[in-house]
Amino acid sequence: MTQVISTHEVGKRYGHKWALRDCTLSVPEGKVVGLVGPNGAGKSTLLHLAVGLLTPSAGTIDVLGASPTEGSKQLSKVGFVAQDAPVYAGLSVAQHLRMGAYLNATWDHRFAESRVGQLDLDPRQRAGSLSGGQRAQLALTIAVAKRPELLILDEPVASMDPLARREFLQSLMEIVAHGGVSVLLSSHLIGDLERVCDYLIILARSRVQLAGEVTDLLATHWRLSGPRRDPSSLAADQVVIEESHTDKQTTLLVRTEQAVLDPTWTIKPVTLDDLVLAYLSNPPRPERPALGAGQSSRRPDLGVVR
């Protein structure tokens, strides 16, 4: 699988504080990739490193086979919509399109104008008076009209109402349907992204907790419930992600490539929501051996998917 982004132990430090540390991950080509993690996980920092807005304090990051700060050729290959979709409040919609035309050699003005028309935006309206949803649509138009190979969106729908959110994701899916662009979008809620993503990366505390095709993830994670028992007695290929016990019952969320054959378990499929929450609330903590050495060897860090 070709990668559009691959990082190796990349980190960004502000003073003594690390916003992102030792992050190693890969983003596959030709997919819509969701980057999910709690606030403060370093998602924005990672995306800013990928578009060259920030330079790493440690490690390496490689985007489309080059350093993100390589130059204007690299910049023209990556489209970016920053969090809250910043636009120039004093410039009109049409002037934003002119900015795009002035600053991008690969600019597709016909596309930009027709999209503004479809969105029912008044070209003369100042961007400062657009609604949040319209602003994000304008920012998306600018990012897509430069015809990038990779489109990166930072929390694109976080501050939108449900209707604007649906329309925005609809637009995004139309753009993806035209093909030729890989998409990476971040969110702290998987619910936002579930409809559009076909690949998922879960990031918590700078670490990749899980990465994979959505269909594969759903096919390899199960919720098991049955009489109370010790999770360590499970088959070797079953990795416990989350466990909860009552006096009589045990409920587990396990990852396994094989079918679960033990007849004492009631087996249910998991939703993407359950899965993300399980990984986010139970991140593997190698720095905390209190969980037990056995535990950590049973829970390998799934950081690298090559």
């Binding site: 807005l53 120039y88 900015m99 600053l103």
Partner: peptide
Amino acid sequence: EARTERLVWAQGVTRSR
């Protein structure tokens, strides 16, 4: 202040230029 540098620096012109 308006955080628009995140818009303009993501266009096809380097920050130096």
